[in-house]
Structures are given as structure tokens and as C-alpha cells.
Design a protein around this nucleic acid. Structure first.
Lengths: 176, 176
DNA sequence: CTGCCTGCAAACTCTTTGCACGAAT
DNA sequence: ATTCGTGCAAAGAGTTTGCAGGCAG
């Protein structure tokens, strides 16, 4: 959110750790990413893998700037530009989901795979983002077609909500 | 969308037309706005009224930059800064609805009053924004409460859709 | 008169892009 | 050896803000 992240990372001359040797919790998704790159004729670079791994380490939603930090912890040579250039690749491959809650910056989250029809619930107190399934959105798409003669491509349902506990106690139990 | 709108408007010395003499199609809403300003201890300025009138002349959704143009046609002295400072006042007063379709810039539209539960359908071919009612969103809010213990504040449902006619004929019948 | 509002321009935030070097195939 | 990918820094786009002067109440 703030631009306190302007810290310089001077490139070190030690050889970078082999990306394949990194402990990977999401080997399956990682392989999908690798396959996607190859299929598209894109190159499998250490930076792209580091960015991917950084993204899939995360449980919470993150911003591009945060992802830059996470990825740099894995590979010091990752730059902001490459993060921004890699994010669309990961969203197009459906491995990452982009979430725009209207705050100016976009959030990202590893796609859970199962459900494409989810709603984001954004807590105005915590700023946390929850995802819950919204199966009726599928049905809703068909009503759009019939009413407007348009074929739905994608849908987003976002709910802003306040945390009852936070309002009472000044602390959100979900935090941390 | 582009920043071609940087045209200079030098201030003219002729007295500005009385804002109240402007033909107003939305006298009721205009009065609501005036009341809202007074209630909040804000001043009723010519610029604010011009921006309001410009917004309520519009049938389509518009951006802040477009609103600046429209408002300047009514009152030459309106500046970009004042447009940006007035937009939140109009949205907080529920006279204007803000629509963020994730393209970087925000769109605005006079609130139709009746329905707070509407979905935006954005045509990826026309870039047009349609609004259709989505009454189930009210019900959905309550499921959020029970599932997460959060009280919904607002909801947005946005559908991206492609125009069937445009895909076939290369022309959208809904255009202009 | 008082102090909120305004226009101007500069600043800010997030994202994209041009360029020359470096690495993947 | 090619050619694509990369880091850097600057540019863009949209929005916000500090300041000195202007107008509403």
C-alpha cells in the first residue's frame, strides 16, 4: 500500500539456487505453470519460477508489490517489471485469480481450482478478503443472456462487510 | 480514457450565469443535493451545482474526466480538482453511484433511486455499461452474515459479457 | 468578515514500456 | 547463436493535495 518498498537489492554474484531445488509445496500447480509456459512458447526462467513459487506460498491475498517482496526473498534478481509482466501470464493460465476490490490496486490469489463462481467478501475493518462460493452466479449469467442478448464472459460479486466483533471489541478475531 | 482533455480554459470575466436559471431536468435530485450540502455544513457553490447538473444531464455512465468536460460546458470555471473533490460528496449522498469495472478508471451514474441492488453488465465489445436488477443480492447478504459473522455494507455484481450481434456482424445494434 | 472552496500545478500511486544487456533454448 | 526475457529508469494514467487567493454565509 505504501511505497516503503523501494529498497535496493544489489545483485549478488553468487550463483542462484537452482529453482528446482527449492522446497515446493505445490508441485502440481508448478508443473502446470511450466507446461503452460512451454505450450505458449515462453521461456522457463528462474525469475518466473520464483514469482510463481512466491505466489503459491501465500495463503492470503497479495498485491503485486507484496509479490515482488516475496519473490525477491526467493530470488534476489527478480524485478518489479518482471512481476508485472508475469502476473498476466499466471492469470491467463488460470493458476492465479485477480481480485479488484476497487481500492486502486489489484489483489491476487492462487486459484483454488474447483470453483470459478466465488464471491469476495472484503472486511472494511480488517481489510481481509474472504472468498465464499456463490453458485447462483452461474444461473444469473443465463438471465443476462436472455435479457440483454449478451453472452457472459466472467462475473464478479463483491461484498463489503464490517466485522461485528471488531465493532464491539475493537479487535478482529480473524486477524492473524 | 486518453488525456487529450488538457485543453486550457482561461477564465472569462463575464459574470457566470446564475446556476438556478439553468434549465434543470432533475429539480428534485438537485434539491436533494443542495439539502445534503447544507446538512453537512458544506457550501453551495456554483461549481458544485454545475458538476451536479452536468452529471444528471447524462444518460450513459461517465468518467471523472468526462464529467469535467460536461461541467465546464455549464460553468467554465470548474476545475479538475473540484470535480474530484465533488464526486465523493455526490456518492456519499447516494445521488451518484460509483462503478468500478476494473479498467483503472472509475465510472459514475446518477442513482436511479429505486433499486440499490443492481448488477452492472459490461459489454467487452461496446464498452457499454448496462444495469439490471439483481434482487437476490439482498438475500445473498444474509448468507454472508451467517457464514462469516460479517454484516454486509454494500455489494457489487459485475458481469463481463460479449455482444452476440457484434461478434457476428461487427457492429453493435445498441451503439448510439 | 471569516473560513471554507477553488484553481493551479506538483505530487502520488500503481502500472507499463523502451532500451541494452543477459540468459534460455 | 538466436531471440526472448530481464532490470533499470522513465513515462503514463488516474487521482490527490498544498498553497494562495476568492467567494459563500
Amino acid at each position: 500500500m505504501a511505497n516503503l518498498n523501494a529498497r535496493r537489492h544489489e545483485r549478488i554474484d553468487t550463483p542462484r539456487g537452482e529453482p528446482d531445488s527449492r522446497p515446493v509445496s505445490n508441485a502440481a500447480a508448478r508443473d502446470k505453470f511450466r507446461q503452460y509456459l512451454i505450450k505458449k512458447g515462453l521461456r522457463v526462467t528462474n525469475q518466473r519460477l520464483a514469482i510463481f513459487d512466491a505466489a503459491f506460498e501465500r495463503k492470503e491475498h497479495f498485491t503485486a508489490e507484496q509479490l515482488l517482496d516475496y519473490a525477491r526473498a526467493l530470488d534476489d534478481s527478480v524485478s518489479r517489471a518482471t512481476v508485472y509482466r508475469t502476473l498476466p501470464i499466471m492469470t491467463e493460465s488460470a493458476l492465479l485469480r485477480e481480485v479488484d476490490i476497487g481500492t486502486g490496486e489489484k489483489f491476487y490469489h492462487p486459484a483454488t481450482g474447483e470453483s470459478t463462481q466465488v464471491a469476495q467478501v472484503v472486511c472494511v475493518d480488517c481489510d481481509k478478503i474472504f472468498e465464499i462460493s456463490a453458485p447462483f452466479m452461474e444461473w444469473y449469467g443465463s438471465t443476462v443472456s436472455s435479457k440483454l442478448g449478451l453472452t457472459p464472459v466472467s462475473q464478479r460479486l463483491q461484498v463489503s462487510a464490517q466485522c461485528d466483533a471488531f465493532r464491539r471489541t475493537g479487535n478482529c478475531p480473524r486477524r492473524g
